[in-house]
Simulated scan of single mutants.
Amino acid sequence: MIGLTTYLEQSRTGVWDVPAAFLPRVYFDSVIRAGGIAVLLPPQPADPASVGRVLDGLDGLVVTGGKDVDPARYGQAAHPATDEPRPDRDAWEDELLRQAIARRLPFLGICRGAQLLNVALGGTLHQHLPDVVGHGDYQAGEGVFNTVDVRVEPQSRLHGLFDALAGPHSVPVYHHQSIDALGDGLVVTARTGDGVIQAVELPAVPFGVAVQWHPEQSADDLRLFTGLVQAADRYRTGADHTGRDHTSADHTSHGRREPS
């Protein structure tokens, strides 16, 4: 059972123009094709008890893409190019991630999800990458995904999921922000050639992976989603959902491979 966070935006369909929770189909299709059951998690009051009840029913979590994280969460004023903040979604996903980490619940962060994870753990973001790298190749605009090459760090979980592929590995991107100062406990596991962080992991948990790119856009490559679903299955069968240690089950079956 895999929970996926959703947008909450004004939306039009037929005669209706109302605030609505939604998520592009490619996200939950990827979870389903990888063998999981998808459950959508719209933004709502983020009190710890409610979040705990939600996570009681899940075996894994995907924090999806969307609007920029509120810069106030990492002590900065907003850049002119930064989105209008979505404080309800920020708070909801922050609490989901914090409790998922405490429970050692497997999670995957995608684009905004990677950025929010970093901020939740005390890190900061580059608010507008063109100011840093001098080009806008990471976000072409008009909903068009660019492809960039990333290099994956050896000995990382990502390296194992990609069958010991260090790189270059082509991935679809659509982001104008990225991780700057790293959050507590995170390690960088992939970068592009210009140094932009494209993936991080949290080694303290059995499966805590976050990528800046959009794996749901690669219909023929389910490796990240399959890795999450397999970790969720181990979580479900290896212990209850109250945070009991899952370490032994993970170390024997998580599938990490040494470089060949």
Rank of each mutant, 00 (worst) to 15 (best):
T13N: 11
A199P: 06
D137W: 14
P48K: 06
H159N: 09
L40P: 10
R89H: 08
R257L: 15
T82F: 00
V39S: 08
P48V: 12
K67P: 10
H251W: 12
A199V: 01
Q198P: 00
Q44S: 14
R53F: 08
A78R: 12
L125Y: 05
T64D: 01
P19K: 07
E201T: 08
T124F: 01
T5N: 00
T13A: 15
L125P: 07
R89S: 09
V18L: 14
D245C: 14
P168F: 05
V187W: 04
T226V: 15
P24K: 11
H159K: 03
V196R: 03
G35L: 12
V15K: 11
F28N: 03
G35Y: 07
H169L: 15
D220G: 09
A72H: 09
A102N: 01
L165H: 11
L186K: 00
V62I: 11
F207M: 05
G185D: 13
A166Y: 06
V209E: 07
H135P: 01
Q198D: 12
E9R: 08
W213L: 05
P42G: 04
G227A: 04
A78S: 13
G52F: 03
S248Y: 13
V196D: 04
D184N: 14
A34T: 07
E95D: 07
A199M: 02
G255E: 12
T247V: 03
D233I: 11
G134M: 09
A91I: 13
G52T: 15
T5V: 07
I32G: 00
H241C: 03
P80Q: 06
V31G: 03
V152I: 15
P19H: 01
G134W: 07
A249Q: 12
Q10R: 12
A190D: 11
I101C: 02
C111F: 01
R33D: 12
L108A: 12
D240M: 13
R104H: 13
P154Y: 03
P42D: 00
Q139N: 13
P168A: 03
Y74G: 02
D88R: 10
N146P: 07
A100S: 12
A20N: 04
R234S: 08
L116M: 09
I37K: 05
D56K: 12
D17V: 12
I110P: 01
D233G: 14
G238C: 08
E258A: 13
G57P: 02
R104V: 07
A20P: 03
R256G: 15
R73Q: 08
V148S: 00
P43I: 09
D47L: 04
G109K: 05
A34W: 13
L96I: 14
P203K: 04
D221W: 09
T82M: 02
D220T: 15
V18R: 11
H176S: 14
Q115M: 09
R25P: 03
R191Q: 13
D90W: 10
Q44Y: 10
L222Q: 11
H251D: 09
V229G: 01
E216L: 01
I37E: 11
M1I: 10
A100I: 10
Y138Q: 08
D194A: 07
